[in-house]
């Protein structure tokens, strides 16, 4: 069932995930649509997230937004970014130049060529924000060589995370610490539990689908949410993912469709990247348990594959 409603306040709102905002539009969501969307979220009992653009909202929008409990996702370059629950940075430079609030969650969107900067960024943000979420903007372009580099990088990051956790610090880094506390899949779930309302007043699984083709909507504020072939967004209809234990994987339906043409089938690259992270999480878990008591009853067994697709004949 639906749990989250993402309200995109403008065509040029920040991407906080894998998709790129390729829109040249500058349209804000209309006041009427904004109010209707909020009402929809209230009657459907959904958690609401507002996605902001870099520029200021028109007069009156802020007051409407504050009529409902919500989460603000704001680019760090926006004038009101200090009020964000989640701050989005689109580069290393942006994150270096920003003074975060300790309660804020930081999303860092980077390319694979930049991941070597992550240990330094991790140190830089230590104790300065609540959590760091790293989004790889070009995960579908990883080569075999990139996988090797990424594995080494994760090992470096893993050492830092392990030390921090043993010392009792709060070291939340989505790539490595989410899996430490998960025993079931915890994915994006766009199209199943999450739906986005765009400035045109129409629903999409997420903004990425809107930017690909605004005509492929899943209903609108008048007709309600009409998700076609909704079961394909569910884990039980994802033949690879339902056998997988990289529980922290974003399992991005938009990226799936982009790379394999099917929302329920991940690319090889997405699977391998998630498994490299999973395996490093397993190493961290072992190290922590050797050093101290660790409460969550998580298990991350050793496996002999990086892409569960390779094991399909055993399913």
């Amino acid at each position: 069932m639906l749990k989250y409603l993402v309200i995109q306040l403008a065509d040029d709102a920040a991407s906080y995930c894998h998709y790129e905002n390729v829109s040249k539009g500058v349209q804000f969501i209309s006041v009427e649509n904004l109010k209707t969307a909020i009402r929809f979220g209230m009657v459907e009992n959904l958690n609401i997230q507002f996605i902001y653009p870099k520029r200021a909202l028109p007069d009156g929008y802020a007051e409407i937004i504050e009529t409902i409990d919500h989460t603000k996702i704001i680019p760090c370059a926006a004038p009101n970014s200090k009020s964000a629950d989640i701050v989005v940075c689109n580069s290393i430079e942006e994150i270096e130049g920003y003074n975060f609030d300790k309660e804020q969650i930081v999303i860092l969107r980077i390319y694979r060529s930049e991941v070597n900067e992550l240990p330094r960024i991790y140190d830089l943000l230590k104790g300065k924000c609540a959590r760091l979420n790293v989004v790889l903007r070009d995960v579908e372009k990883f080569s075999e060589g990139d996988f090797e580099d990424y594995k080494s990088l994760l090992a470096q990051l893993g050492n830092k995370v392990t030390t921090s956790l043993i010392e009792g610090g709060n070291a939340q880094l989505n790539l490595l610490t989410d899996r430490l506390v998960l025993n079931t899949m915890n994915n994006c779930n766009a199209g199943d539990e999450v739906v986005a309302i765009m400035p045109n007043g129409k629903f999409y699984p997420c903004a990425g689908f809107y930017y690909d083709n605004p005509n492929e909507d899943f209903g609108d504020l008048m007709r309600g949410v009409q998700i076609k072939k909704r079961q394909l967004f569910k884990l039980s209809y994802a033949p690879i993912c339902r056998h997988c234990d990289a529980y922290h994987c974003r399992r991005c339906a938009w990226l799936n469709r982009k790379t394999t043409l099917e929302v329920n089938t991940p690319s090889h690259e997405q699977c391998v990247v998630a498994h490299l992270e999973r395996n490093e999480s397993g190493r961290i878990l072992s190290s922590i348990r050797e050093a101290c008591e660790y409460e969550p009853e998580t298990t991350i067994p050793e496996i002999d594959y990086l892409d569960p697709f390779e094991k399909r004949k055993e399913w």
Partner: peptide
């Protein structure tokens, strides 16, 4: 059409994955 590659570039294996992992139940 679903074109999974060609004689110049070879097969895009990502486009084959949905076919090879598809099951009756899914």
């Amino acid at each position: 059409p679903i074109i999974i590659g060609n004689i110049r570039d070879g097969i895009n294996n990502n486009l084959l994955r949905p076919f090879l992992s598809l099951t009756r139940s899914s």
